[in-house]
Amino acid sequence: MSDFSFQGVTPDLILDAVESVGFYPISGLLPLNSYENRVYQFLADDQKRYVVKFYRPQRWSDAQILEEHQFTAELAEAEIPVVCPLSIQGKTALEWQGFRFAVFPSIGGRALEPEQLEQLEDLGRHLGRLHLTGSARPFSHRPQLYTRAGLDEAAQELLECELLPDSLREAFRAILLPVVARVQAIDWDAYTHVRLHGDCHIGNLLWRPEGLTLVDFDDCRQGPAIQDLWMMLSGDRLQQQIQLETLLEGYEEFMEFNPRELHLIEPLRALRIIHYMAWLARRWEDPAFPHNFSWFAEPRYWEQQILALKEQLSALDEPPLRLQPGFN
């Protein structure tokens, strides 16, 4: 078992950890949908629901975890709806028997509906405000969204992955390496980098009676603004055009958008595809991964990924989305 293991995070350890900081569950521990960390909801004796998050060992340093917490605190201070860890005796980053954890208030809500354009415009406003705050200063410890070394490492892990069938290894290499080369050919330093949510997809956006709330800043890092926008685009080119302009109508109320970043949408999509596959390969020793992602070990999956990478290489050659003339 690797150093990234959660071996030892038993129900008794979880209960001891939360009780050590003054929370006394009167319900069972409800596992929430998280594979990178271990996250549980519980009802405490004060009749309030909380969420405890155990950080995967060795993934982030203490300083990087604190930067996540400090960033959400800055956003909350700017009245941007986010979920912040609770400060307990002046600390948000807690520790129990070698495992680092944080406690959050539990909030309810429903998923954002991207086909509802008024919700997309509201998300644009939230992201404009988030990036305005994020541009005030850089992260000191959190990584860049893209690094050449990080992409090289992900590609190498995939090429050496024991689950990649030998019969497909050469075909996979033949398409993976050109996609990697195209992403690395971009001058990423030519774009402004701000502190980002980093993983802004529908699962991390909750629509509540009082409006939209952004959750789960575990992947926050430094990068171009378009990273927090492009995952909301779906459908054909016309639909994506409408969605993009709707997002930017709200976004530009607070933050100017550089249209040159539209050239980064497909490279960022390629980067996400590669890093997602490498993440699965890297975590395969965690029993939760073979159980929940069994298809990753099947030849058909790798055949599909070869096709997906071929399609992505073609997408990298297509002209980017363009804003309509006169767009404000």
Rank of each mutant, 00 (worst) to 15 (best):
K53Y: 01
F6D: 01
P85W: 06
F139W: 00
R282N: 12
T133F: 06
S34G: 12
E95I: 12
P81H: 12
E19R: 15
F23Q: 12
L15E: 08
P114K: 08
D199E: 11
L132P: 03
F293K: 13
A308C: 01
H263G: 02
I65Y: 06
V183G: 04
I274A: 00
R300F: 11
M255E: 10
L280C: 08
R142H: 03
E79P: 11
V52T: 13
P259Y: 00
A288E: 15
E266D: 14
C200F: 13
L196H: 05
L323G: 13
L127K: 09
I14D: 09
G90K: 08
H275M: 09
T133C: 06
E115L: 07
R282G: 02
G108K: 02
D216K: 02
I186F: 06
L132V: 10
G128Y: 00
L264W: 03
R208Y: 08
S61Y: 00
F254A: 02
F257V: 07
E67Y: 03
N292M: 10
A281E: 04
Q47E: 15
E115H: 09
T213R: 05
E77N: 06
L94P: 03
T246E: 07
P25F: 11
L30Q: 13
Q241C: 07
L66T: 14
L214G: 02
L145Y: 14
P267K: 11
S27K: 12
T72K: 02
P11H: 09
Y276N: 13
P320M: 07
Y146S: 02
K91S: 14
L30G: 05
K48A: 05
I242T: 10
F139P: 04
G28W: 06
Y40M: 04
R129D: 07
F327V: 11
A278N: 11
S2A: 06
G22N: 10
S27Q: 08
E67F: 04
L264R: 01
V103A: 01
I226S: 04
A190M: 08
F257Y: 10
P114N: 08
E170K: 12
Q41M: 11
W60L: 10
P105L: 12
L238Q: 14
A278Y: 07
Q119L: 04
E256S: 15
P114T: 13
A63L: 14
Q64M: 09
E210A: 15
A102N: 10
K91E: 15
Q239C: 12
Q58T: 12
L280T: 06
E68H: 07
A278H: 01
T133P: 00
N37W: 05
R269N: 09
L307G: 01
N37H: 06
P259A: 06
E157I: 08
R148W: 07
A136T: 03
R129E: 14
D219P: 04
V52M: 07
P287E: 09
A278R: 01
F293W: 13
H291E: 15
L205F: 03
P178I: 07
C220G: 08
V179K: 05
L244Q: 04
P290K: 14
P267A: 01
Q243K: 03
P165K: 00
F54N: 06
E160W: 05
G124K: 01
R56S: 04
R260M: 07
E113Y: 05
M231W: 02
T147S: 15
L280V: 13
W295D: 15
T92D: 14
F172R: 02
F101D: 05
R38G: 00
E170M: 11
D228K: 01
A93C: 14
F23G: 05
